[in-house]
Design a protein around this nucleic acid. Structure first.
Length: 1104
RNA sequence: GCUCAGAUGGUGGAACUGGUAGACACGCAGGACUUAAAAUCCUGUUCCCGUUAAAGGAGUGCGGGUUCGAUUCCCGCUCUGAGUACCA
């Protein structure tokens, strides 16, 4: 039979699925190998031909490793939280979960038809509660941790608390917020719980803090730095502004050094490592304090300044701290510059300068991010009127502000050394400030000279020293004086960890007042609630604020005999609907309480039981959210005793009273003492109260009783897109575990990802955050490797090739229905318009198809060149809106998956970006047919010979065995496709139909073209499905041994002829043989060679 | 501006540690089969000069260098792509 790829591919895809052929074993004697693809966001557009590129490569590699005897884990899943589904929901009202589900179905169908060897039993989806339960859990671990610099790892927050309780803040070296308090153990213990919480928040690895964020009003959310490009959002291209907001952040800066050092231990592309290094942005230098000096001539106004300073006192004694990488140049400092946003600017501005400074601040605020970037030449700034003192020579230098100093980097202040820094130089020239050379070989005629060579001059105690000694000396000097110290600064900022969006993981946090608390671990997952609309509320709160009952109900703590603690409810959120489950829980606690009464309760109970007060009294009865000590449901009276808890929490009691009142209960309270002293009197009070109250309507305990209960507000923002992708490779190891994010056993077996394939666009996002979380999990001893991805390969991007038509613009500036061919557009006023690449061939527009492409083009007219409409071409991203998408479905339908797989590999090196071009796919298709034909006779009948393979056949076979081994190991998939073609061409020429040879060839090719190989494998008489785990053929070098080699003979490096010479011949003999050759005599032309170079088995070169 | 990657026929690309530049494909040209088309197969295809065949010359972005020999190594430059952006 002819090569029927459609039947074959369907059949084997079904077989693999039915037999779970690629299910990985968690416990195997074979060595493990983990091949991972970056999991996709399932977009509505489905896959285009660019998406599978990396998956094909990883699949070939995974299949190859199986043949090589490895236990391969090769999973796939979906990064299914994200903006597009939510944007779609906003527009259509369709729940993002539904959109996502539909998109995943499309993705799955498209992936399946390409014959990937994924272990689908381990599929993960970041948006499924079973998965994000553990994303939330990891968040909680981060919340419960702090970074101990002394141990250089994250540790439990309990350990920090224990330290505070014993030693106060002394001796703690932590990565924390800047403004942490210092306190003694006693002071710590004296703090209220809330104050302690607030302080601990400054240490936690995930924390809430007022931060300047990238706010995108159009998207209604904040964005991470890596999601902002040139002041616009990466998705959608909307403007982004800076805004101060209370935000969740991740203390990734704690790991800056380890993230940097770790790069040296992993096998990643150098450019990608470089991007991470730049992003981390380590600079080694020093921080120096410049004392603020009084204005030079204290005027009445000058004094006024000091009085109005925000510090409330004398600014003398206060200092400006700068960070510098060239502290050795400090004697060249002739002024200081602050960022306009620097907090001390208002206080340091003298009244004379106030006007100028304010004008400058206003002006630089107005400048957009873009202006500031494009305009790097203009010097601008303003003098504050104040001066500071250089600590090394006590000289007064003026203090300026200028927007070339960034508030967000370092301390937002720089010491200006115009002789060594070009920006400072320009600034000094502009403001006529002195420029002081500090190196003997410095040339500062026209520009700054940042040289480190030479000896210092004008530098007091540093004069005559070189860079290294000078730097050491000046740091020692500053340290001794307490005016500075060596310091390392990082460019990387903590990562904002919150989006004001719906379609993301809820943050497992609720609030008491302003303080965040974790929900109970047993309440995970905190499931995303339903909302009526996916938009922010009218008051600008995130969409989750629309969710009904989006509040946390903390279960009452287990009662202690003395405590009988009630949940600490406080005024706040109101809840109208009942929660039967919670009510059941309350009833349980009530029963517990009844079984363990306190002394006082017991006394009162003896008086009130059996209708002794005239009405039925219940004790420890659940009402709404609370358990009342005694209650008459009939009369609506709650009697509360003064438990241990109540004393501590008057506010909570008041709130409780308010709620109970709302529910129709009157509340009376007694202290324990009152009851102990005069129980009978209390009894009488209660009795009177009961009589005075009207009878209450009966309410069902489940229905009405819970109404109006108070709850805690949950966090309203959701986690950012990178949360779910920062640990997913561990979930694949144990995808269905509902006790742990992955079991210790499986983590210890699979350890880390051996090969990770994905795009370089994740360099500073996903790949950095994943390394961060991995290091944290390692610190927590939850995983075993410090780095998650041992080897990483960036597949190139397949770009689209767009075609354009050019619409003629009339003199009014309106678009017409006339289109100008590309060659003529210079003569007309036109505007370009994307046109569907499917109606263009070789850049010539099919005019008839164009007219039917869009209704409004039915009457289009054209200005042609040479009778043709030539389209413009541009290489850009493949996207629906650009009409340049090539769909793999179409190609699979026409050529089959095996052809598409091999063609995508054949296109060029995996890591290279290139525009898609379907031309050439025929060549690969022909190759597979030719391969198929090797196994068949002229009548398309399966026909093989069992004879001994010939030497030539074995040579072809073993060449390809070795070649594929070499190529796959170095990820050069394109070259092995060529080699397969060569092998099949050779075997065809040899008319090879030898079973032994072809069977091995099938195994070698099966990683690339699995379907056709499975089919032939079974024809060859093997067990269906066994091919995937067949042994890779053993290469035997003997078959490639030659006894002759065709030496290229060159004269002065230019090849002239080839001569067959025995490989056993030694160089001396080769030289003689060559020089004696008749043809060579002609070239030598009687001359004697100056020199003859013979490289055995390679080349002969004659120098004349 | 800085950092990184790259530049090879009409096209995609190959040449792995310096050793026959252009493998393998696409496209194109010519041919075979066929009434014809499709499909398939064969031949040619870096450029220039020349031709019956030959023989010669140039050639891996440009200019230098090292070397018997350079697409490969070194120096300078041009262009393209990516990242980054006043980072003190």
């Amino acid at each position: 039979m002819d090569y029927q790829f459609k039947d074959i591919e369907q059949k084997w895809q079904q077989f693999w699925a039915d037999n779970q052929t690629f299910k990985a074993d968690d416990n195997s004697a074979k060595p493990k190998y983990y091949v991972l693809d970056m999991f996709p966001y399932p977009s509505g557009a489905g896959l285009h031909v660019g998406h599978p590129l990396g998956y094909i490569a990883s699949d070939i590699f995974a299949r190859y490793k199986r043949l090589k005897g490895f236990n391969v884990l090769h999973p796939m899943g979906y990064d299914s939280f994200g903006l597009p589904a939510e944007q779609y929901a906003i527009q259509t009202g369709q729940h993002p979960a539904i959109t996502t589900e539909a998109n995943i179905a499309t993705y799955r169908r498209q992936l399946d038809q390409l014959g990937f060897s994924f272990d689908w039993s381990r599929e993960v989806r970041t948006s499924s509660p079973g998965y994000y339960k553990w994303t939330q859990w990891i968040f909680m671990q981060l919340f419960n941790s702090w970074y101990n610099k002394a141990a250089d790892k994250a540790e439990s927050i309990d350990k920090l608390v224990a330290h505070f309780e014993q030693n106060g803040s002394a001796g703690i070296d932590a990565v924390s917020d800047e403004e942490v308090a210092t306190f003694t153990a006693a002071e710590w213990k004296a703090l209220s719980k809330e104050e302690q919480q607030a302080e601990l928040l400054k240490y936690r690895l995930t924390y809430l803090r007022e931060s300047t964020v990238n706010w995108c009003a159009a998207l209604g959310t904040v964005l991470a730095n890596d999601e902002v490009k040139d002041g616009f959002s990466e998705r959608g291209g909307y403007p982004v502004e800076q805004k101060k907001m209370m935000q969740w952040s991740m203390r990734i800066t704690a790991y800056a050094e380890r993230l940097l050092q770790g790069l040296d231990t992993i096998d990643w592309p150098e450019p990608l490592k470089e991007m991470q290094r730049n992003w981390i942005g380590k600079s080694v230098g020093a921080s120096v304090k410049f004392l603020i000096s009084a204005p030079p001539k204290p005027s009445p106004e000058g004094r006024a300044l000091i009085e109005v300073s925000p510090t409330g006192g004398d600014l003398e004694g206060a200092a400006i701290e700068v960070f510098t990488t060239r502290v050795d140049t400090i004697f060249g400092v002739t002024f200081l510059v602050l960022a306009p946003e620097h907090e001390l600017v208002p206080a340091l501005t003298t009244p004379d300068q106030k006007k100028e400074i304010n004008a400058y601040i206003a002006q630089s605020k107005k400048k957009s991010e873009l202006d500031r970037m494009s305009d790097t030449k203009t010097v601008s700034g303003a003098f504050t009127g104040s001066y500071v003192i250089n600590p090394v020579n006590n000289e007064q230098v003026p203090l300026f502000i200028a927007d070339y100093v960034l508030a967000g980097y370092g301390t937002g202040a720089v010491m200006a050394v115009p002789s060594g820094d070009q920006r400072d130089y320009l600034f000094a020239k502009h403001y006529n400030l002195p420029i002081m050379p500090i190196m003997d070989i410095q040339n500062i005629e026209t520009e700054a000279d940042p040289t480190k060579e030479g000896k210092y001059i004008n530098s007091d105690f540093m004069n005559g020293l070189g860079y290294k000694e000078g730097t050491a000396k000046v740091i020692a000097f500053l340290e001794a004086k307490g005016a500075g110290k060596a310091k390392v600064n990082f460019r990387m900022r903590d990562a904002i960890f919150g989006r004001q969006r719906y379609w993301g993981e809820p943050v497992p946090v609720y609030f008491k007042g302003d303080l965040p608390y974790l929900i109970d671990e047993k309440d995970l997952p905190l499931v995303l609630p339903e909302v009526d609309k996916y938009l922010p509320t009218e008051s600008g709160e995130p969409p989750l604020a629309r969710a009904e009952g989006w509040n946390y109900r903390q279960a009452p703590p287990k009662p202690s005999p003395e405590g009988r603690a009630y949940p600490t409810h406080q005024a706040g959120n109101y809840r109208e609907t009942a929660d039967p489950v919670y009510y059941e829980q309350l009833k349980e606690f009530s029963a517990d309480n009844r079984n363990q009464p306190t002394e006082v309760e017991n006394i009162l109970w003896q008086l009130l039981r059996n209708n002794q007060a005239g009405y039925k009294i219940r004790r420890q009865h659940a009402i709404g959210q609370f358990i009342a000590d005694f209650v008459s449901l009939e009369k609506g009276l709650a009697i509360e005793l003064d438990g241990h808890h109540h004393k501590l929490n008057k506010e909570a009691d008041d709130a409780r009273t308010e709620v109970l009142n709302h529910l129709g209960f009157e509340v009376i309270r007694f202290t324990n003492d009152e009851i102990l002293k005069a129980p009978q009197e209390i009894f009488e009070v209660i009795k009177q109260k009961l009589n005075s109250l009207p009878e209450r309507q009966k309410v069902s305990p489940t229905g009405g009783d819970l109404e109006g209960a108070r709850d805690y507000a949950y966090e309203l923002s959701t986690m950012p897109g990178w949360a779910g992708s920062s640990w997913y490779w561990y979930r694949y190891m144990d995808a269905h575990n509902d006790q742990e994010f992955a079991s210790r056993k499986d983590i210890e077996y699979w350890k880390d990802v051996d090969l990770y394939i994905g795009g370089s666009e994740h360099a500073t996002g996903h790949l950095l955050y994943s390394r961060f979380w991995n290091k944290f999990l390692k610190d927590m001893n939850l995983v075993v490797e410090e780095e998650p991805f041992k080897k990483l390969i960036n597949q190139g991007h397949i770009q689209g090739r767009s075609n354009f038509v050019y619409r003629l613009i009339d003199e009014m500036g309106r678009g017409t229905n006339t289109f100008v061919s590309h060659g003529l557009i210079k003569q007309y006023k036109t505007s370009p318009l994307h046109v569907d690449v499917n109606i263009v061939e070789n850049d010539i527009l099919d005019i008839n198809k164009f007219k039917t492409w869009r209704d409004d083009f039915a009457n289009a007219e054209f200005i042609l060149e040479n009778g043709k409409y030539v389209c413009g071409v541009e290489i850009e991203k493949m996207s629906k809106s650009k009409y340049n998408v090539v769909n793999p479905d179409v190609l699979v339908e026409r050529y089959g998956a095996d052809t598409l797989r091999m063609y995508e590999m054949f296109l060029g090196p995996l890591e290279q970006s290139k525009p898609w071009n379907t031309n050439g796919i025929e060549g690969v298709f022909k190759f597979l047919r030719k391969f198929w034909r090797l196994f068949h006779n002229d009548q398309w009948q399966f026909s093989l010979s069992d004879a001994e393979p010939t030497k030539a056949e074995l040579k072809s076979l073993h060449k390809i065995i070795r070649k594929v081994e070499e190529d796959v190991e170095r990820f050069s998939f394109n070259t092995s496709v060529s080699s397969f073609m060569i092998a099949v061409n050779e075997l065809t020429d040899l008319k090879c139909n030898n079973r032994a040879v072809l069977q091995e060839l099938v195994v070698v090719l099966s990683a690339y073209a699995p379907h056709i190989c499975e089919e032939l494998w079974v024809w060859l008489g093997n067990q269906p499905g066994s091919l995937s785990y067949a042994p890779y053929p053993k290469f035997n070098a003997e078959y490639l041994v030659e006894d002759e080699y065709s030496y290229p003979i060159s004269i002065n490096g230019k090849t002239k002829i080839n001569l067959n010479i025995s490989l056993s011949l030694e160089p001396k003999a080769i030289e003689e043989f060559v020089l004696a050759n008749a043809d060579m005599q002609k070239y030598l032309d009687g001359k004697t060679p100056k020199k003859v170079i013979v490289v055995k088995g390679r080349i002969v070169n004659i120098v004349l």
